[in-house]
Computed example of a mutant assay.
Amino acid sequence: MQFIENTEMSEAAQVALAKRIILRSKIKDFFFIATGVCMASIGLKGFLLPNNFLDGGAMGVALLFDLITPLNLSLLILLVNAPFIAMGYKQISPQFAVKSTLAIIALSSLVHFIEVSSFTDDKLLIAVFGGFFLGSGIGLSIRGGAVIDGTEVLAVSVSRKSSLTVGDAIALFNILLFIVAILLVSLETAMYSMLTYLSASKTVDFIINGIEEYIGVMIISDEAEQVKATIANDLGRGVTAFRADGGYGKKGNNLPDRKILFCAITRMEISKILLEVEKIDPKAFVIQYPIKDTKGGMIKKRPLH
C-alpha cells in the first residue's frame, strides 16, 4: 500500500514538473516574441519607413507595395503574411500558426499606432541599423516559435517539392524581389535594400545560432579508445562511440569492426580537439560540420536559452 502511494506521489510530482516546464517555456516564448515585435517596429518606423527603404522577404514585399500603392503598411503586413501563415498551419503546426498570427497582428498594430522619429538621414546607417533592428525582431520571434516574416515557411515548402534547399529558395525569392524593386522604384533604393537585407539576415543568424556556433566532430581512428578517454576526461566533453564495419579499398572486407567517435563542441574548442586527436593518432580521419542547435548533454548552454 505504501509503495502504491509513493508511486502516485511520484507521478503527481512528474505532472507538476511538466506543468512548470510548459509554463516556463510559454513565458520565455512570450518574452522573445514581444521583444522581437518591438525591435522590428523600431527598425521599420525609425529607419526604413521614413526613408523609403526596403528589406528582403515578406516584409520587403509589404514595404514595396507600401511605396507603389495607397495601402497602409500595417494592412500590407497582414495581407502579405497571411498565405505564409496558412501554409505554416498545414506544414508546421496549428500552435505555430496561432503564435505567428498574434505576433504579426501585434507588429502591424505597433506600426500603425506608435510614432517613432527617424533616427538618422544617413543612408548607410539607415540600411545597416534598420536591418539590425528588423533582423533582431525576426530572430527573436523565431526563438519564440513564431515568425513575423513568412518567407522561411515558403522556403521550407518549396524545398520539399523541388531540388532547391531552404537557403536557395530564400535567395531566389529575394533576387526576384530586388529585380522588381529596380524596375518599379530605383536602382539606388534596391542596392541599399540589399544592404539592409544582408544586415538583417546576419543579425537573424547571430540571434538564432548565438556567438558560439556548435560543431559536430566525427573521428575515425585506430586509437578510438584513447581518443575517447582524452576527450571525456581531459577536455571534459561528452563523446559517443558508434560501432561500424571497416571498409577501405580492397582491404575493406578484411578490416575489423571499429568505433566512430562523435562529439558536439563549440567552434572555439575545435582546435583543442584536433590537437589532442593528432597527438594520439596523426592518421585519424576527422569530419567537421555545423550544428544549428543543441540541448542537454555535456556542452555549455547557448546564450538566451
Rank of each mutant, 00 (worst) to 15 (best):
residue 22 I to C: 11
residue 273 I to F: 09
residue 88 G to W: 00
residue 13 A to C: 14
residue 236 G to D: 12
residue 250 K to E: 06
residue 188 E to R: 01
residue 304 L to K: 05
residue 200 A to D: 08
residue 277 V to M: 06
residue 211 I to L: 13
residue 112 H to R: 10
residue 60 G to D: 13
residue 62 A to C: 03
residue 228 K to H: 14
residue 117 S to G: 07
residue 170 I to K: 04
residue 62 A to P: 07
residue 51 N to S: 14
residue 188 E to Q: 14
residue 278 E to R: 14
residue 42 I to D: 00
residue 8 E to G: 01
residue 14 Q to R: 13
residue 253 N to H: 10
residue 187 L to P: 03
residue 184 L to H: 01
residue 44 L to A: 11
residue 247 G to H: 03
residue 138 I to F: 08
residue 75 L to F: 12
residue 245 D to N: 13
residue 194 M to W: 04
residue 129 F to C: 04
residue 220 I to H: 04
residue 76 L to K: 02
residue 201 S to D: 10
residue 99 K to I: 08
residue 122 D to K: 05
residue 253 N to Q: 15
residue 4 I to R: 13
residue 117 S to L: 12
residue 15 V to A: 15
residue 150 G to E: 02
residue 283 K to E: 15
residue 236 G to S: 08
residue 247 G to N: 13
residue 305 H to S: 15
residue 226 Q to K: 15
residue 197 Y to G: 04
residue 212 E to C: 10
residue 126 I to E: 04
residue 173 F to A: 12
residue 90 K to G: 03
residue 30 F to Y: 03
residue 18 A to W: 08
residue 151 T to I: 07
residue 123 K to F: 12
residue 25 S to I: 06
residue 241 A to P: 00
residue 21 I to K: 15
residue 9 M to C: 08
residue 7 T to Y: 13
residue 30 F to T: 14
residue 113 F to T: 11
residue 235 L to D: 04
residue 164 L to Q: 01
residue 141 S to V: 10
residue 298 M to F: 14
residue 43 G to V: 06
residue 20 R to F: 09
residue 59 M to F: 07
residue 157 S to V: 10
residue 104 I to A: 07
residue 82 A to K: 02
residue 143 R to K: 15
residue 244 A to S: 03
residue 183 L to F: 12
residue 98 V to K: 08
residue 54 L to Q: 08
residue 80 V to L: 07
residue 222 D to W: 02
residue 243 R to W: 00
residue 46 G to H: 06
residue 36 G to N: 04
residue 297 G to Q: 05
residue 139 G to C: 09
residue 229 A to R: 11
residue 83 P to D: 02
residue 185 V to F: 05
residue 157 S to C: 06
residue 253 N to Y: 07
residue 40 A to Q: 14
residue 38 C to K: 10
residue 99 K to M: 06
residue 252 G to N: 07
residue 243 R to I: 01
residue 9 M to S: 14
residue 15 V to W: 11
residue 266 T to R: 11
residue 29 D to E: 12
residue 92 I to D: 01
residue 92 I to H: 00
residue 156 V to H: 12
residue 281 D to R: 10
residue 6 N to P: 07
residue 1 M to Q: 12
residue 279 K to I: 10
residue 95 Q to H: 14
residue 42 I to A: 08
residue 230 T to A: 07
residue 65 F to I: 10
residue 149 D to G: 13
residue 217 V to N: 02
residue 266 T to K: 14
residue 151 T to A: 12
residue 62 A to E: 01
residue 51 N to R: 09
residue 17 L to A: 13
residue 86 A to V: 08
residue 132 F to P: 10
residue 290 P to W: 06
